[in-house]
Design a protein around this nucleic acid. Structure first.
Lengths: 221, 221
DNA sequence: CGCATCTTTGATAAGTCTCAATAATCGTGG
DNA sequence: CCACGATTATTGAGACTTATCAAAGATGCG
């Protein structure tokens, strides 16, 4: 009798292992005052690791950051990408619950302000916004099929870049797959399908012209 | 040529439609002061709807609450369950982004405190905790298979009920499925598998004895 | 006790993953 | 500037997991 219920796959480590940062340069500190540092990270450099003590609030100056968690066997879920202007890295207790890495070369403002009531009231709307984003992403991952997920991702990136006719993706197909709970092959096939249907044009794998925004919007409901 | 990429299914409305609350009783107000109301909701009663103006902070006194979002075709994703003591319903802007419903009969303390700096510093850790929970759930839904998801759900419910040998589930298989991004059939088969393997005993569909916690823990990594 | 609802089980279909190979791109050094 | 190797992306075929459809069984409420 075949029960139809699968149990954990043997391993995934080859496909979604944590980025090897051995080749990346150490971050360089550009500015340094009592409360602020502007630090530049090379592509794939680690900003902080899960379990590290929380010390700071981070703000993206330029570039893109990925926040993720891992399973013991190497399966990875990227929970968020952050772009210029956005905050991340604040936690309720004294240890980071996630990893943060630079996707491309990026500048991060690291802020050491003590968590007083003033900061709390500034942080609360940011935290609530992050919560809404995460919960909306749960709907995408939990209830939408591959094509819908990729469409939702493209729409989101377009809106964050403020241009509904063109998108520049900082991240690889692997990052997109780990953000959407898919494999790189499935993500790639969705892009191909969009191209075949005339929704997008791929100037290169990461440089995309949007031909039919409405089609993408309808797709992700 | 078959592209391997699926597009949205025709409809799901029959399976995961929003709960029909036409039969439920109006909520009854038990206590009422300037800042506090204790309101009792019947099973499946709506606490607030997506789009409604936010007015309050909610705390569960007893019972279980589900928070969810819908797609246009009725697909539903439950983003969180809340049990006694937990807060929910605070939002960054002036409209609710989600629906909240009573799973079983439950008492909700509705609080009208103005959002000042004092409240913000109380709320921030709660919001951050909710954010961490949502992001951890993203990993479960995005990267774990059916058996792992159900195991993770059981472990979570056990820990929240403070008893590692027994769980009482307030919610139906439909709710569990919509929380885990599965179908009720798949959830049911996972329970059956756990029973066959001797991990759990089902006294009824919602009354569960845990025989082998470690097996469940290992399963969800 | 009976009916509606919820849950389980089975058979089949559909969607995504896996494995494999090819193609394109990027960075580096000649 | 081109050649080369390494990385990244695309495409194809087949396997596997979960969804769908259908029906039977259990549970709970009036």
């Amino acid at each position: 009798m075949y029960s139809q219920i699968a149990f954990p796959p043997s391993h995934y480590a080859d496909r979604t292992a944590r980025t090897d940062i051995s080749k990346s340069f150490p971050p360089s500190i550009i500015e340094d005052t009592q409360l602020h540092q502007l630090v530049v990270f090379a592509p794939n450099a680690e900003i902080y690791a899960q379990g590290e003590p929380t010390s700071s609030l981070y703000q993206v100056e330029f570039g893109t950051v990925r926040i993720y968690r891992l399973l013991a066997d190497g399966r990875r879920q990227i929970t968020a990408f952050h772009v210029a202007g956005e905050f991340f890295g604040f936690e309720a207790d004294d240890a980071h619950h996630f990893f943060a890495e630079a996707v491309d070369r990026c500048g991060i403002r690291i802020c050491q302000r003590p968590l007083d009531k003033g900061l709390a009231s500034e942080l609360l709307p940011i935290a609530l916004d992050a919560l809404v984003r995460a919960q909306k992403h749960l709907l995408v991952i939990g209830r939408q099929c591959a094509g819908e997920r990729v469409a939702a991702f493209l729409i989101d990136m377009m809106e964050r870049q403020g241009d509904m006719r063109h998108v520049e993706l900082a991240m690889s197909r692997t990052d997109i797959a780990d953000y959407l709970g898919l494999t790189i092959e499935t993500v790639s096939r969705a892009f191909t399908k969009f191209r075949e249907r005339g929704y997008i044009r791929l100037k290169s794998a990461r440089t995309i012209d949007i031909v039919d925004v409405d089609a993408l919007r309808i797709l992700c409901a």
